[in-house]
Every structure is written in structure tokens, then in C-alpha cells.
Write a protein that binds this DNA or RNA. Structure first.
Lengths: 222, 222
DNA sequence: ACCTGAACACCGTTCAAGT
DNA sequence: ACCTGAACACCGTTCAAGT
């Protein structure tokens, strides 16, 4: 009864393009999200995609926005102290980015678009308000929280996903090892401490510090 | 007397390759730093570069390391309170990255290599020690300071340099504008505040906050 | 031993031409 | 009006072959 038995080319829509792009990232990693490969998945030519997205950057932002749907905005069902809930929301955000390191790298430069990003910001603002933080300061602090979470995920995500494994880690270790005790005594002494700790512990400490500092640091007047 | 009048192909060395790469970035921006374009400048084929650098990532890290020479590690000639000097060093670092936004984006993912990076870390560690911060905490705080400075420069550097001007800004404004007062009341109310402030003010507040928080947030035991 | 020409396997984006 | 084939102008990296 349908017009075709196997409609091999369902009509393209922006939503469909973005959804397929997200699937591509899920299957093969963000490094493989290219216009040409996406077009291939959609059984068309790359030129056709430009009807739905402006360029690659906009496409990446849209996919990023899609992935943010997985962030848990109501951990522990809204119970518990506000700061603990905030830590969990931020933790959920970084967990999502950590699963897709190449996307985290995109997120550092390109802000995600779409309703999920808005909902995340809204949730963080509400939690800070609950903690009694003045609005203008909360705005900047949310920015800083997301900046740190994103950059941290991007940095630690350099290993894995693609074949780049621990190359960057080895380089850093070599750089630190090159620190002579006479020229750079503190780096030499702290070499291990600089890279020590599980990423999760480090990130939790970062957030603790941001909250503690945020509570005590008013915005400059004018 | 020399073997040739105009030795059009001086022998390649790693140092020479990196120096030419740095010049290329200075002249045309980091986006134009490609193996092929660099090879062209050196009057050779791209394959030859692989004798001196492992891959593009390593080349970028080396150039980044070179640029760090411009960071002022002894502002105000070592006078004044430690925290004010630290703020200036971090400010000098971000100023360098802000001049080359595409490099800042590289720095988020790839840690710079070379002696200048080591000297920067050493200086920051020394300043924090002067401020009485325990060593292990100082190590993590330096990491966080550089993370924030780098990511912040990378983010604000999305405009300019290449033709990408305010496209990202416009997108963000559109996203914030889409926040309905009923669904996302806080985002709607704070829309302006979220993006307000000169990057420099914002960054200074970030550093203030990091120092304040760092002083009061011990590392987790274990 | 050291270097590299040429090839392989890709890219993003545009635009004239088709339906 | 909507869509796209084909072209333009690029990429990183490898490796067989040359000196």
C-alpha cells in the first residue's frame, strides 16, 4: 500500500541529518564525523547536507547538543544538599564527554546548541541559587564550571578512542623527566604529583575548589 | 669561496623546521600550519618532515613550546605581593595565547613541549610556595590555572584570526534568546549576564577565584 | 644511511546544471 | 524551488625507490 516497498531514501530533514550524525559519532567516534561520510550514510552526496547545516562546526554543535540529553539533571531525585547534587550533575556532564573524548575537544571550542544545553545551564543556575549565590556571580561560575569540566574531559580524553593511546602521556612524562633538579627544582620534585591522581579525584577537587572560591569571590564592581 | 653563492636549500634540522613552523603560524595563523605548507616553505616535500617530527600533533606541541618564550615570567621585576605577580604571569600566558587563538585551541588538547613550558610551571609553583601553599596542592592548582587560562583563551579566540568572526557568538545569543521565560526562567533572566563582561575581567575573576578556592580546599587524602 | 617523489586515502565547500 | 554531480582546492602519512 505504501508507495515503495523499501524506500531507500527517506526524505531528509535537519533532525534526521543530526540524528544520523549522532549515530555516526556513537559508532565510529567524532573524528569520523565528516560531511562526506555522513552523506554516505544518508545515501546522498555531501553537497546535499548544506541544505540542512551551515558547515561542519554547526553540525558538531548540533551533535553535541544531542548527546547532552544523556546528562542526568536530577540525580538522587532532587534530594540531598544542593552542592552534592550540583557535583553530581557536573559529574554526569563530564562522564558523557569522557565517553566521547573527540566530542569533548569539539565542546571546548564550539558551544553546544539545543534545548539540552539550556536545561543544563538552567539546572546549574537553580542549584547555585539554592546555595544562596548572587545571580550575576552564578552566571560566571556556571561558565567556569562547564569550562573546567569540558577542558578537563578533553585533555584526559586525548588517550583512547582513536589509536592515539598514551602518546601524549609519554611525551609529558618525558618533558617532566627532562627537568633538571638544578634548573627546575620544583618541577623535578613535584613531577609525579603534577600528573598524579585519578581524573575523577582531580575533577572532584576542581569542582570543590570552584564552589569554595565562588562563594568567597565577589564579581568586580564595574 | 663558499660552495654556492645562494644556498637555496640550507640543511634541515629539527630546530630549523620548528622555527619555520613558528614563523608560518605567526604569518598566517595556526590553521595554516600543515605539513604540506611547511614543506613548501622549506623547499622540500612533505615526506621529508617526518625525519624531524613524528606527526602533526608533535609539530604543534613544539611550535606551542616556542611561543611560550614570549611569556613574561618576572613581571614587575619580582617585586610586589606573590599573588599579584602570579596574576601577571598567568595574564601574560593568556595574552600570548589570545594573540594566536588557533594555537590556544591546540594547547587545550596538546600539552606544549620544551623548556619554556617547564619554566612557566616552575615559576607558578615557586609563587604558590611563596604564598604558603602545600606542594601537592600547588601541583594540582597549577594544572587548573593553566587549564582555565588555556580553555578560556581558546573559547574567546573562536572569533577573529580566520574569517569565523562572530558566528559562534551569534549562535550563542540565538540559543540564549530561545530560552523561554517559562521553561528556562533563570537562563532567560540571566541571558545577558552569562555572556557579559570583557574577557579580561572574566579571566581575572577566574584566577582570583582559583586562588581563593585553592587556599581553602585541601586535596583529598589518599 | 639518508632523503623524497609519487601515490593512497582522504577532506570541506561551491556552483552550474539538472529535475 | 529544491537538490546534487562534479569539480576545486586542499589534507596527513607511507613507502618504494633513488642518491
Amino acid at each position: 500500500m505504501s508507495r515503495r516497498e523499501r524506500p531507500s531514501k527517506p526524505a531528509l530533514t535537519r533532525a534526521g541529518v543530526v540524528a544520523t550524525a549522532a549515530a555516526l559519532v556513537r559508532d565510529e567516534g567524532a573524528a569520523r564525523l565528516t560531511m562526506r561520510r555522513l552523506a554516505q550514510r544518508l545515501d546522498t552526496g555531501p553537497a546535499s547536507l548544506y541544505v540542512y547545516v551551515r558547515d561542519t562546526a554547526e553540525l558538531q554543535a548540533a551533535v553535541l547538543g544531542e548527546f547532552l540529553a544523556a546528562v542526568d539533571l536530577t540525580p538522587a531525585g532532587e534530594r540531598g544538599p544542593w552542592d552534592e547534587r550540583l557535583r553530581r550533575v557536573v559529574g554526569s556532564y563530564t562522564a558523557v564527554l569522557r565517553e566521547h573524548p573527540s566530542l569533548a575537544r569539539v565542546a571546548v571550542v564550539t558551544r553546544p546548541s539545543g534545548p539540552h544545553y539550556l536545561a543544563l545551564v538552567e539546572t546549574l543556575l537553580a542549584l547555585l541559587a539554592e546555595g544562596g549565590m548572587p545571580d550575576d556571580r552564578a552566571a560566571w561560575l556556571v561558565d567556569l564550571l562547564l569550562l573546567v569540566a569540558t577542558a578537563s574531559a578533553a585533555e584526559h580524553g586525548t588517550r583512547g578512542e582513536d589509536g592515539t593511546e598514551g602518546a601524549a602521556d609519554a611525551d609529558l612524562a618525558a618533558t617532566l623527566g627532562a627537568a633538571s633538579a638544578t634548573q627546575h627544582p620544583r618541577v623535578a620534585a613535584l613531577g609525579a604529583a603534577l600528573v598524579s591522581g585519578a581524573p575523577e579525584d582531580r575533577e572532584r577537587w576542581f569542582v570543590d575548589l570552584l564552589l569554595a572560591g565562588g562563594m568567597g569571590t565577589p564579581r568586580p564592581d564595574r
